[in-house]
Computed example of a mutant assay.
Amino acid sequence: MIFSSLFGKSDPNASPRDVGHDELQKAVSEGGVTVVDVREPHEFAGGHIPGAINLPLSRFKPDQIPAGKPPVLICQAGARSGAALRQAHAAGATHVRHYPGGMNGWRARGGAVTA
């Protein structure tokens, strides 16, 4: 799956760094992304997107993001994943995106969650 086609601009007002809900839901269901949850381990254990990995912002290093599938950062409400996104982009990992709605938005829109 090609990153640029997967995360096309379905919302003309969205930042090119953001991934919309429908795009993320499709990518997760097809196994086309690596979801990187930057919440703390106890938050992650309380429910996360199936297949997500946990790299807490408190210890986040952009070089820890696995290579391969396009990475999408997520947190609870969007602030921490935004901070991790800025760190990743500053380190040259400009292919990294984030889901600004966070787990709150993911759950509110019926996204799958596992513990």
Rank of each mutant, 00 (worst) to 15 (best):
G51M: 03
S58D: 14
R107K: 15
G68F: 14
V28I: 12
C75E: 01
H89I: 10
A52K: 08
V33C: 03
A67V: 10
P66H: 13
D63I: 10
A83Y: 08
P16R: 14
D22K: 14
A88R: 04
D11E: 12
P70H: 09
A91N: 09
I53V: 13
E43V: 11
E23P: 04
A77N: 10
G47L: 10
L6I: 05
D11A: 07
F7H: 00
N104M: 15
N54T: 02
A79S: 13
F7A: 00
V19C: 06
K9T: 05
Q64L: 14
L85C: 04
G46C: 11
A67E: 15
A45E: 13
R39H: 07
V35I: 13
D63L: 06
A77T: 09
G105T: 04
G47R: 08
V33P: 00
G46L: 07
N54L: 14
I74D: 00
Y99L: 08
V96P: 00
L57K: 12
V96K: 02
T114G: 03
G46N: 12
Y99K: 04
G110V: 09
P50W: 15
R17G: 08
A90T: 03
A108I: 06
G111R: 11
L55T: 05
I53Q: 02
P50Y: 12
D22L: 08
P41M: 13
G51N: 08
E23F: 05
A91E: 04
H89Y: 14
I49G: 03
I74R: 02
K26P: 00
S29Y: 07
S5T: 10
V36H: 03
D22W: 12
N54P: 06
V113W: 10
G31A: 08
G105M: 13
